[in-house]
Nucleic acid binder design. Structure first.
Lengths: 183, 183
DNA sequence: CATTTCGTTCATTTTGAATTGAACGAAACC
DNA sequence: GGTTTCGTTCAATTCAAAATGAACGAAATG
């Protein structure tokens, strides 16, 4: 941990809530820990939890460098983590006058977080699923009549229909989730 | 692949939909592939998708051994995978007269699957989260007044309240999800 | 225009989870 | 009661995803 860089960051770094990117207070640590747990629960990378936790606890904007040094994660992790978080709207960049570096703040509206996450992770998978269902239907019809045992074929047909029903329900239900959380 | 065992299984094994635990038809393969994809999407082990896919496509009950040989997975995987699937109600054991071995069928009601999964995975995490919130509150109150900077303390306090609100909403909303899917 | 500062990218390393398979206990079988 | 057949368990292995950090390009700076 090169002291030179640290010193520099303390001179130039914005003193968000009065402290430079040095270390976490016990309470802040507890916040980060909470979100690390949440990340685990959602099977997201731990770094996402750390970063979001820090920003959540900060209130104000934090610079890229602050994130790296206070969480002691690599620049690579921070960069990639922030990209994902921005990707589903959990984090926004903020303009800070007189500092050309990027600054980030946490989005704290639950509805936005959830819908963003769903949109980003479930939705594409759902689309891929639909595609697979089409392939499945194709395979079912392409099955040579010779190899068809009437009963087996009927079962498979029924299962396919069930999958289609699942898909429909899911597609209808997901948006409602967003509305529920909006309350 | 020991022929001896295979032969035996064909003699003794129940001929579900007319076929022993040999190999998957193209259509069945497509079903399994679908559920493997779904497992990936939900970040569950691939083996869960394989097993459930096979049972889903089969309609009728399948023996432990059939699962192992047709999917070509280890007994360990099959055993553990089936336990998890049973754990959240995606799979049930069925009695098959004249065969002492275990037989399994897939639960195909979407509502049960989803609620089972939620119950098993989210619920405990939610509980853990609540516990962490209490710790967090403790840490916040324990913070020595000397180290408190009024503004920072206020922010953290506000954030904690926000987390509590999130928790409440989540706790209220999850059960509704089950009801929505019941339609 | 040369130099410094930022943040990203990507090949490598690390870490954690899933899978395997040998060893085992329990139940059925003769 | 000895033997075989099941399915589980768990230590070792394999595999995939996440983290690292050096190299890089782009933008600001002077």
């Amino acid at each position: 941990m090169p002291g030179a860089i640290r010193a520099r960051s303390q001179i130039r770094g914005r003193q968000t809530s009065g402290r430079a990117g040095g270390s976490l207070s016990p309470v802040e640590t507890e916040f980060v820990s909470f979100f690390v747990g949440a990340a685990r629960a959602l099977k997201l990378p731990k770094s996402l939890g750390e970063i979001y936790g820090l920003l959540f606890a900060s209130g104000g904007p934090r610079g890229f460098d602050e994130i790296v040094t206070t969480l002691r994660i690599s620049r690579g992790s921070a960069s990639q983590g922030l990209r994902v978080l921005r990707g589903f709207g959990a984090v926004r960049t903020t303009y800070v006058a007189g500092d050309r570096r990027d600054h980030y703040v946490a989005e704290t509206e639950l509805r936005k977080l959830v819908t963003g996450l769903l949109e980003e992770t479930i939705a594409p998978q759902l689309a891929a699923g639909t595609e697979r269902l089409d392939r499945l239907e194709g395979a079912l019809r392409a099955e040579p009549v010779a190899r068809r045992r009437a009963s087996a074929h009927a079962i498979l047909q029924g299962r396919l229909e069930k999958l289609r029903a699942w898909e429909r329900i899911t597609r209808e239900t997901l948006p409602m989730l967003g509305r529920l959380l909006g309350a």
